[in-house]
Amino acid sequence: MDKVVLGKDLMLYTGTGALTAESVICLLKDCTLSISADLLETTGPGGKFKRYVYSAIGYTISGNGIVSYTAINNLVQIQEQLIAWQKINWKFTAFHSGGLIYSGVLLWNNVDNSSMFSDAAQFSFQATGDGDFGIEKIPFLKTVYLADQFGNRLPGCPDVYPVKVFWVDGSLMGIAYDQVDVINLFNSYPSNTSLTLNGYTSGCDFNLSAAWNATDVPDWIVAEKLNDDLALSDAYINIIGDGDGKGLSPILNT
């Protein structure tokens, strides 16, 4: 299933230096990123259909939001940057780091501040891109740990082996006798097309890399100590039985 990205998850970051989590334009309601190319007609006398080649490419960014004077990056910063003729770094993404990231440099064309009598003050802006339009596809990097199906760290960590290791849909990948086994089982599992364990920091903690467009990125890896088989048998049956997703590790969305 493809991942649906909601508009509320996409955020615009702007600033004059390196963009941090605080660079997001707060209370932004709508944002439009528009890229276009000029076309040059090359039609000759030899046919009735028009022909074209690409020419210059440009893009614009526009948006509107609620004014919040306490926000770190908001209307006033934009106005000050415009007055100071500053070129602005921007980034448009659902995730601050990792995933699909559009980026570049913009110049503010105009910033409107409308303060209606009985409504919250609002602002809108239009900006023009300067130079290249960056499209980056950056893997997500995070740490995961061995846990039960509810995310509870496996009792006995870091000394838990041997363990049964399960894929995110509850299917059994195999038995691991140490951390390297966990990595090998995880990375080579046929259903795994976008997740990679790169290493470990303890018996239960691993480094996970997920492709930029991975649909499910887990917070933990479901595992079960071999001597706990009986105690977990109900859940085990449920996980691998009907595949309805109950008991699966939750999906990271932010």
Binding site: L40, E41, T42, T43, G44, P45, V53
Partner: peptide, 8 residues
Amino acid sequence: VYYTGRSQ
């Protein structure tokens, strides 16, 4: 060399 813009 291309024609352009139907200018020829």
